[in-house]
């Protein structure tokens, strides 16, 4: 598996500067096909910003971001448009359309294709709802009537609507109860094996991180200090990594990791 490393995302010498503050400085990162890459870093270290640049919501100040081989520089071409249908994004705060019901939120990307019959869309939406463990009774609710965790799950269902090859998850498990976290982890794993998904995930949740990640990219000092398997990352003697993973919280999660991979 390690041999066939086709890069789905390539980031080269990326700089991102907001008016006066440098967020990313000479950052390099590759995402391979079929892997689950976790992006970790302190709060405000620029994880969301990095993901937003990958999907072209924001342009790098300097450097290149390529996704599916297309340069994400803000130019709108048919290629970029097509690429856009091949990824889904789960936003940190859900970003549901507040004036549409849960059902319509998930159906929206399908309806946008303008070719699918409504009964097929209906079935697919119900399937997606079931996948994220929501009840069909929730389908009629408005986003403002949902709990925080439900918003996350609806947003995930919407991100999955077009069966993307590449999925961006910004803190998918923040705000979920432990059981939902578990089921989320198993959902992602089944999806990944069934659909061959590539996933880029921002997370602070060490359990999810160790359970799922093929590789972990650590964002500190304005660039990726290491991008490697969880074990290798843990072995790196860097103050951020030491405090992030090797605190008491980290120890517990690592026990889980060791149990999983004896």
């Amino acid at each position: 598996m390690a041999m066939m490393t086709e890069n789905i995302i390539e980031i080269r010498n990326l700089w991102k500067i907001y008016s006066s503050s440098v967020i990313h400085q000479d950052l390099n990162l590759d995402v391979h096909r079929g892997e689950i890459l976790s992006l970790v870093g302190g709060s405000g270290s620029g994880k969301t910003t990095l993901v937003r640049q990958m999907i072209g919501l924001e342009q790098p100040t300097r450097g290149k971001v390529k996704v599916f081989g297309e340069l994400m520089d803000g130019s709108v071409s048919q290629h970029v448009e097509n690429a856009r249908n091949r990824w889904g994004m789960l936003f940190q705060h859900g970003a549901l359309f507040s004036s549409l019901t849960v059902f319509d939120n998930i159906a929206l990307p399908l309806r946008e294709l303008k070719t699918l019959p409504e009964n097929l869309i209906h079935d697919l939406v119900m399937l997606k709802l079931d996948m994220v463990r929501l009840l069909s009774a929730d389908a009629d609710k408005m986003p403002s009537d949902l709990s925080g965790g439900m918003v996350k799950r609806v947003a995930l269902a919407r991100a999955l609507a077009l069966e993307p090859e590449l999925l961006f998850l910004d803190e998918p498990t923040a705000g979920l109860d432990p059981e939902s976290c578990e089921s989320f982890v198993s959902l992602i794993r089944t999806l990944q094996s069934a659909l061959g998904l590539t996933i880029v995930m921002v997370t602070h949740d060490l359990d999810t991180l160790f359970e799922l990640s093929t590789r972990v990219a650590v964002l500190a000092e304005k660039h990726v200090i290491i991008c490697a398997s969880p074990k290798e990352v843990l072995a790196l003697p860097h103050p951020f990594i030491q405090s992030f993973f090797l605190g008491e919280r980290g120890q517990r999660a690592m026990t889980a990791l060791n149990l999983r991979k004896p």
């Binding site: 009964n119 097929l120 079935d123 697919l124 399937l127 997606k128 069966e163």
Partner: peptide, 10 residues
Amino acid sequence: DHLGAQFFWN
């Protein structure tokens, strides 16, 4: 994918 499967299923 799920759309294809759902299509046959229907």
